[in-house]
Amino acid sequence: MFTSSLRIVRFALQNFWRDIWLSTVTIVIFVLAITLVGILSGVKVVTDQAIGVLKSKVDVVVTFVPKTPEQTVLDLKTKLEQLPETASVSYISAADNLKLFKSMHADEQAITEGTDALSANPFGPSLKVQAKSLEQYSSISKLFEDQAYAPFIDSGSKSLESNQIAIQKLSNFTRTVNRFSLALTIIFSIIAILVVVNTMRIAMYSHREEIGIMKLVGASNWFVRGPFLIESVCIGILAAALASGVIIGGILLLSHWFTALFQGYDINMTAYFLNHFFSIFWGPLVGALLLSMVSAGIAVGRYLKV
């Protein structure tokens, strides 16, 4: 058994090397298929990150009228924090709101003088709420209609309404992008699968006579199939390694573009890709390896009935 297994491995490596042109062509086609799906996986990651950045910038600010009892604001804060849809709630005091307003209008003398002339703080406190997903803002906002809080919420605060529209638009946009990217991934994955399977079938077809001869000489099915399976594993591994090289090269080439795209945000896309390389690209890499084995096994099986 051990001797036979060693022979099968030897035959596989021998066949791979002696038919180097067919092996090379098969590997090149595999690399193209893997890279194609790999690029789509990469694009999806970049899109997800970009959408993530947009989402992280979305929040709802509820401003209270001046002289709202602090306990009412803190009660609402606690209730908001208890909602499963809430990601974070931060309390901004009336004094902080005034400070923020002044800093935003520091260059406008009239506004600065006007606010300084006021004897009392015209601002009330506010709560800045972030939901876990865009779709959850509408359910969170229902709490603001509660009669315990609604009278204290500043009617002039339009943040809620205008944000709702923007959130809805963003939500629709991300849903469309995700659907489009999923559809593209499915279509190109199917194309890649067909390419890999048919390449292997053609490779096995070119060896059909050889398979028949082995059988006529008395080789058992596994003795015939074994070298072809191992050869397909070699092709799959080499193609995966080369495709990884191509993808990594592409990532490094595009690193300047990634830096420009996420400028101002704490995101290093190149490092992210390199650190999460296998978790992002395992699908096409492992898929090509398994597909090449399975399709080789099935294709050889067709010619074993001699």
Partner: peptide, 10 residues
């Protein structure tokens, strides 16, 4: 090859 398939020794 005809001997290898039958498991003959090297």
């Amino acid at each position: 090859f005809a001997l290898e398939v039958s498991g003959a020794s090297n």
